[in-house]
């Protein structure tokens, strides 16, 4: 009887042990392809930066074998961001994608604490052995946008509205300005910002006021890089165009980050796209195929990281001649014939 008990005991123990081993192996296999996306405050529906990231994530999720546990979280207030990154870094996720410069500093710290965890950082140039930093060349894209605005402007007055006054947005502004001056050295550019605190990203009312006063001072094209505040500029341009129907004095707006041409077809001149979606998609692709590399990756025209949006919504606004000019400038930027000033290097 005792022997029987002993054998039973062993059996049970080994049974449970193997069960445990199977379960843990299984979960190990799952852990490997779990992707976690951390979005900045705008959230997945901001029609802009975060949305672009989320779209890339969704596309990767449908194309690759990624566990359904993969998820996105949205940082609602700054104090949550270290906590989210820290909790997700505990080995639960195979790859963590953090969007926005807000998260960059903390990811940099956590990357040292969790050297095995792999990260993708959007909008940063932090160098760690386990971080792939995507550094978008906003100045290149903005240069082209500035040139397009100068080509299309009838009043030779254009405007720039930034969100919060920080180096990242000033980089847009400087590129835009030098692009416009490249085409027309005498062009007048008004540059203004919604504010100096994070609230500036979410103040469409003030952005609208700024835009209306710019349009009233004869600027006919405004390039806006202001997160959720951008909506105010889109409202302002529709208001202006409702009041006067003449084609010669039509006002335009230029979108940013995502392709925003569809928001008001025919009035959104173009958009300066940061291809966050495709870069995140390819990061996930590399990760799944085990080709993940780290380091700072620059995403400019040459790497298809930034571009101007040309689609059915704004096709009628550009003549073949315009397109030729624009493509010529783009080629010149890629071949470094045109030297685009970078605020990160010039400004300091």
């Amino acid at each position: 009887m005792q022997l029987f008990n002993f054998v039973k005991n062993i059996f049970l123990k080994s049974f449970f042990f193997s069960l445990f081993a199977i379960i843990s192996l299984n979960s190990y296999a799952e852990i490997n392809n779990k992707i976690c996306l951390i979005l900045d405050k705008g959230g997945k529906d901001d029609k802009s930066f975060n949305q672009s990231a989320y779209e890339g994530f969704l596309k990767a999720q449908s194309d690759f074998k990624i566990t359904k546990d993969s998820k996105y979280v949205t940082v609602k207030e700054d104090s949550q961001s270290p906590h989210f990154i820290r909790t997700l870094s505990n080995g639960d996720c195979g790859l963590i994608i953090a969007v926005g410069f807000n998260n960059a500093d903390i990811v940099g710290k956590m990357a040292q604490k969790f050297p095995k965890q792999r990260y993708v950082l959007v909008d940063s140039s932090i160098k760690e052995t386990n971080i792939r930093s995507l550094s978008f060349q906003e100045h290149e894209g903005s240069f082209l946008i500035g040139a397009i605005a100068a080509i299309k402007s009838k009043t030779a007055k254009i405007g720039f509205i930034g969100g919060m006054e920080i180096p990242l947005i000033k980089r847009f502004a400087l590129g835009f300005e030098s692009g416009a001056k490249y085409i027309n050295p005498k062009i007048k550019i008004t540059e203004t910002y919604v504010g100096v605190s994070p609230a500036a990203w979410n103040n469409p009312t003030k952005a609208k006021e700024l835009a209306l006063s710019m349009y009233n001072q004869e600027s006919d094209i405004i390039f806006v890089a202001a997160g959720a505040s951008s909506q105010g500029v889109f409202d302002a341009v529709s208001d202006m165009n409702k009041k006067n129907n003449k084609a010669e004095t039509k006002k335009f707006v230029i979108g940013v980050d995502s392709n925003q041409n569809y928001l008001i077809p025919g009035t959104v001149l173009t958009s300066m796209e940061k291809k966050v979606n495709s870069k995140i998609y390819s990061a996930v692709k590399d990760f799944i195929e085990n080709k993940f590399t780290t380091g700072v990756i620059t995403c400019g025209f040459a790497d298809d990281g930034v571009d101007w949006a040309y689609d059915t919504y704004n096709k009628q606004l550009f003549s073949n001649e315009d397109i030729k000019k624009i493509n010529k400038i783009k080629q010149d930027i890629i071949s470094k014939k045109i030297n685009v000033p970078d605020y990160y290097k010039v400004g300091k």
Binding site: K71, T74, K76, Q80, F84, L88
Partner: peptide
């Protein structure tokens, strides 16, 4: 609440 954001699908930290 901030962990709800991470560990559930439908409930946020609100």
């Amino acid at each position: 609440a901030s962990d709800l954001e991470i560990f559930t699908h439908n409930v946020t930290s609100d």
